[in-house]
Amino acid sequence: MLMALARETLEAKIFGTNPPNIDLSTLPPPLQEPCGAFVTLKRRGQLRGCIGQIEARWPLAVTVARMAVAAAFHDPRLPSLTPDEWKDVELEISVLSPLARLRDASQLRVGTHGLYLRKETQAGLLLPQVPLEQGWDAETFLRQTCRKAGLPPEAWKDPAAEIFVFTAEVIHEK
Rank of each mutant, 00 (worst) to 15 (best):
Q122T: 05
A70K: 03
W86P: 06
V64H: 00
P159K: 06
K87A: 14
C146R: 00
K174Y: 13
D88I: 11
W58N: 08
C35E: 12
R66W: 10
A37F: 07
A6L: 09
D137V: 06
Q32V: 11
Q53F: 08
F38K: 02
A100N: 11
T17V: 09
L117Q: 00
R109S: 02
L10T: 03
E11R: 15
C35Q: 14
A161L: 04
V62R: 06
I93V: 14
L24N: 11
T140W: 02
A72P: 00
G150D: 05
G16T: 08
R147Q: 07
E90D: 15
M67T: 04
Q144I: 02
G49Q: 06
V89H: 13
V130H: 00
P128M: 04
M1Q: 12
P76Q: 15
D137H: 06
D23G: 04
L2D: 02
R101S: 12
A160Q: 09
Q129W: 01
P29C: 12
P30D: 15
R44L: 15
M67W: 01
Q32E: 14
D23L: 07
K87W: 09
Q134F: 07
L132G: 03
Q46D: 12
A61Q: 02
G150S: 05
A56W: 07
T26C: 04
G111H: 01
W86E: 15
I51E: 03
N21M: 11
E11H: 15
S97V: 08
G45Y: 09
A105R: 07
E33C: 09
T167L: 01
H74Q: 14
V89Q: 15
V170P: 01
A123M: 11
P30N: 12
W86G: 13
E11G: 13
R143Y: 02
N18P: 09
P83L: 09
R103M: 14
S94Y: 00
R7F: 12
F38N: 00
F141C: 01
E90N: 13
V165G: 02
G16L: 04
Q122C: 10
P20R: 04
P153L: 05
M3A: 08
D137M: 07
S106I: 14
D158I: 10
P19K: 12
E133Y: 04
L142Y: 01
R109D: 00
E162T: 06
T40F: 04
L27E: 07
P59N: 08
A160C: 12
E133Q: 09
N18A: 15
A70R: 01
E173T: 14
I93K: 10
M3C: 09
D137K: 04
A123C: 08
E154P: 01
R101W: 14
